[in-house]
Amino acid sequence: MSKTHHLDLLNNSISYFREAVAYAQRESDDTNYWKFAILHVVQAMELAFKERLRRVHPTFIYESVDRPGKTLSLKGAVERLRNPQIGNIPIADWEVAKILKAFDLRSELTHFEFNHSHDHIELKFAEIFGFMIFFYRRHLGLETAAFIEEEQHNRIIRLVRTRAELLDRAKAYVKSLEGGDIWLCPTCQEGTFLTAEEQCCFCHHKECVVECPTCGAESLESQLIDTSDLLDWDYDEGRMVLVEEIGLEDHVCPECISETRQKVEDLRRSQYDEDRAMEEYYARKGG
């Protein structure tokens, strides 16, 4: 039974989240699209909260743990998630306020006369969308690709409010970390690339962090510089000398490239001078 609950809660949450994304990514001025985006993303959030509680203990998804029957509300789920003895998840008061406002907005959209502007709904969607990205990853252990396609994610973050909300949340996440270096992401150009996770927590760009074979310093793989252009490929003997003499690596980090170029140039000049000296020697001897 618990396995069935697991599949229903998690997969249904992801299904609603994807539906929300499908409406939001249309980037339309039609308020109805944002209305359905809000309805679906809040439903996705409620199911995700219950799935997290289910992982603590299956009975925690019910209003009464003594008499399992009706599942608890989103508000009840938030309370249990924040309870140190149950979920022990540090959801800040300001985040709770946004969650509850989104919940109230969903109720208005469903049961009452709708009287909110396009901008207001878009903003509320951005807040919950940003929250859910991190909840799925941090508290349900999902890879980004499990709940949103990369192309869809990139289209949504281009929405100004959503992007701002995600960036604020990513920066807050970075500040909450106790260890690991934070680098400038080569894709979004924000200081949100986590070396320990080898992923940007804003745009979710993934890339290996590697050691420079020359100095041993860590660098993004894409930032290593190919040294093949420093070699005379049409002069195999000369290339062999360069590789053997200075131990030339195929790729080096930006900090090492200048020194590597200088070593290659110095060795090339030394080889040239040696060759000229030998030519003159044989010329004199022949003479």
Results as ranks from 00 to 15, higher is better:
S2H: 15
K3I: 14
T4K: 14
L7S: 10
N12H: 07
S15W: 15
F17T: 03
R18S: 05
E19M: 13
A20Q: 02
Q25P: 05
S28D: 15
D29Y: 11
D30Q: 13
H40R: 10
H40C: 12
V41Y: 05
V42S: 01
L47G: 03
K50C: 13
V56K: 04
P58S: 09
T59D: 07
V65T: 04
R67L: 08
L72V: 15
V78A: 02
R80T: 04
G87C: 06
D93H: 06
W94G: 01
A97K: 10
A102S: 15
F103G: 00
F103V: 00
R106Q: 05
S107T: 11
L109S: 08
T110F: 14
E113M: 15
E113V: 10
N115I: 08
H118L: 14
H118K: 06
H118Y: 11
K124I: 05
A126L: 04
F129M: 02
F131E: 03
F131I: 00
F131V: 01
Y136Q: 04
R137C: 09
L140S: 06
H153D: 03
H153C: 06
R155E: 12
I157K: 01
I157E: 03
L159P: 01
T162A: 14
L167V: 06
A172L: 08
A172D: 10
K175M: 14
L177C: 12
G179L: 06
P186K: 14
T187L: 10
C188Q: 03
G191I: 05
E197S: 07
C200R: 00
V210L: 03
V210Y: 09
V210Q: 07
E211A: 10
E211Q: 10
E211V: 11
C212F: 02
C212I: 02
P213T: 04
T214R: 11
A217P: 00
E221N: 13
E221Y: 14
Q223H: 11
L230E: 07
L231Y: 07
D232S: 12
W233G: 11
V243T: 13
G247W: 09
L248N: 06
D250W: 13
D250L: 10
H251K: 13
H251F: 15
V252Y: 02
C253A: 07
I257C: 06
S258L: 08
E259M: 10
T260V: 12
K263Q: 13
E265Y: 12
L267C: 04
R268W: 11
R268V: 15
Y272Q: 10
D273C: 13
E274K: 08
M278D: 13
E279I: 15
A283K: 15
R284Q: 12
R284P: 01
